[in-house]
């Protein structure tokens, strides 16, 4: 099976000299959720941002294979091509909805923005698709025209999800999607993500500091420390039989 994303030797060094990540390699297979776990400073966010095409890597290649576009080397694209990918094929759900949503626009408008960026120009059909997405993420349709500020944190994340899924991207990137949410809300959101993964077969990269989140969603996981991948394997194996010293430390401290 051709991976949806194939990353080799990804290295991100910031202009300040700070190293984000070094020599990171991994594949994401169609329909799978790959977890990336690490503490802050581990490099997981740099990896995510590089794949989201939000920052240019210092070194490395990434081959992206989508049903619509075929195979592309995504770090070698020009600004227009990059924007095309970001708007239609690789969608990012931010940790903080305030960074991602426009709080001056209705929730529906936030989702519509993704469609309009993809050249949808029929208001009725846009409304229909927004409603469909709202239903998909279990948001109340009657709130479609409300401002996001009137939504709870969990609902704001659902709006983000709806927008991310609007153009049926081949790859969904989730950055601590449940960070800052109450435990019960977290659980609901994680359930939703599981369902979406199963129903839509969208490949996902899930970044989290929380092993519980990764356990629930990801079948395979990378463990990162100080910019490098320290261990990778089946999630249940990482959690129950960690091989590397750092992984053992992480697992023992997190799961007690």
């Amino acid at each position: 099976m051709t991976p949806v994303l194939s990353v080799r030797d990804l290295t991100v060094t910031y202009p300040s000299g700070v190293v984000g990540c070094v020599d990171v390699s991994f594949d994401i297979l169609p329909g799978e959720i790959l977890g990336v776990v690490g503490e802050s400073g581990s490099g997981k966010t740099s990896v995510l941002n590089a794949i989201a095409l939000a920052l240019p890597p210092t070194r490395g290649d990434a081959r992206f294979d989508s049903p619509r576009l075929g195979s592309q080397a995504i770090f070698a694209l020009n600004a227009q091509e990059t924007r095309w990918l970001r708007q239609r094929e690789i969608a990012l759900v931010h940790q903080n909805p305030h960074r991602a949503l426009n709080f001056d626009l209705s929730a529906g408008a936030n989702v519509a923005e993704a469609l309009l960026a993809a050249d949808w120009r029929h208001y009725g059909r846009i409304r229909q698709r927004v409603a469909e997405l709202f239903r998909r993420v279990e948001l109340d349709l009657t709130r479609m025209d409300d401002l996001p500020g009137r939504f709870s944190g969990g609902m704001q994340q659902r709006v983000q999800l709806a927008r991310a899924l609007a153009n049926s991207p081949a790859l969904l990137l989730l950055d601590e999607p449940t960070g800052g949410l109450d435990v019960s809300i977290q659980a609901r959101l994680l359930d939703l993500i599981r369902e979406l993964s199963r129903d839509l077969r969208t490949a996902m990269l899930l970044v989290s500091h929380d092993l519980e989140v990764v356990r629930l969603l990801a079948r395979r996981t990378l463990v990162m420390q100080q910019g490098r991948v320290v261990e990778s394997g089946l999630t249940d194996q990482i959690l129950e039989d960690p091989q590397e010293p750092y992984t053992q430390l992480l697992v023992h401290s997190m799961l007690t």
Binding site: A79, L105, S106, A109, L116, A117
Partner: peptide, 18 residues
């Protein structure tokens, strides 16, 4: 530069909604 005008349409969308 990129002809990326989707957001203008968002304002019009919101206008129709309201």
């Amino acid at each position: 530069a990129e002809g990326d005008y989707g957001r203008m349409y968002v304002a019009l969308y919101e206008d129709i909604v309201r």
